[in-house]
């Protein structure tokens, strides 16, 4: 029974270490997107951000297991429409790309195309443990382990599965970020496109994206 002690002791890292690890891991568009310059045109941006935060057109990318939580969130029981959240039919019209659950490398390719077709300011909400660290698919040969290596993510909703209450909490967090001007990383993504493309091409083997296309 003496062996039970020395299995593997996880030392709890300090907050500073966690922050540094995060920066080392995905250094690009994690902290704050710069949608707008808050110093100039303060009043205009305040009004625009107010409108943006209360009108979120949601494109739910549900090929993972979490897709079943989205209808519950949007329909009568939890009624996300009272917060201004409604479904969008195409990426061109959408503001929020919601990725529910795991992403296989095959679907990651489609997600990137969808993300690049959306118009700025655009937000990404990653839903479920699988998008954060792989979840129960941590040793699967065909699913990615951390979404923010491939596209910038604004809000993570942890859980397996997160209930609709958690989804609404995540949207409340997103609204807070939008009001402060800290959400929406489309500009940052285009600026750091080389870094993201390198990560994407490491995973997606049959790369057939056009080199330059109309965003």
């Amino acid at each position: 029974m003496s062996e039970t002690k020395d299995i593997r002791i996880i030392t709890r890292p300090t907050k500073e270490q966690i922050r540094q690890a995060q920066i080392d891991f995905a250094p690009r568009c994690t902290a704050a997107g710069r949608v707008n310059d808050k110093e100039t045109q303060k009043m205009v941006q305040y009004i625009l951000n107010f409108a943006r935060k209360h009108s979120l057109f949601l494109l739910a990318y549900g090929t993972g297991c979490g897709a079943i939580e989205i209808p519950a969130t949007l329909t009568s029981r939890y009624d996300a429409e009272r917060l201004g959240i409604r479904g969008a039919a195409t990426p061109r019209q959408a503001d929020v790309l919601m990725i529910t659950g795991y992403l296989s490398t095959k679907t990651l390719k489609r997600v990137i195309r969808v993300y690049e077709q959306m118009q700025d300011p655009k937000y990404v909400v990653a839903f479920g443990s699988c998008t954060i660290n792989g979840g129960m698919y941590f040793d699967s040969y065909n699913t990615i382990k951390a979404l923010d290596r491939y596209i910038p993510v604004d809000v993570y909703i942890a859980g397996c599965m997160p209930r609709p209450e958690a989804v609404l909490k995540g949207f409340a967090k997103l609204q807070e970020l939008i009001q402060n001007g800290n959400a929406g990383n489309g500009e940052c993504y285009r600026k750091n496109l080389d870094w993201y493309r390198a990560n994407q091409q490491k995973v997606i083997k049959n790369w057939d994206f056009p080199d330059e296309y109309n965003w």
Binding site: E3, N133, G134
Partner: peptide, 24 residues
């Protein structure tokens, strides 16, 4: 998986379940 994907730091609990049970 180790060759292709990057795992987020902090996920140290992803060790072998079989080995863990036998040692416990």
């Amino acid at each position: 998986v180790k060759r292709t994907y990057t795992t987020r730091p902090g996920r140290e609990d992803a060790w072998s379940v079989r080995e863990y049970i036998t040692r416990r």
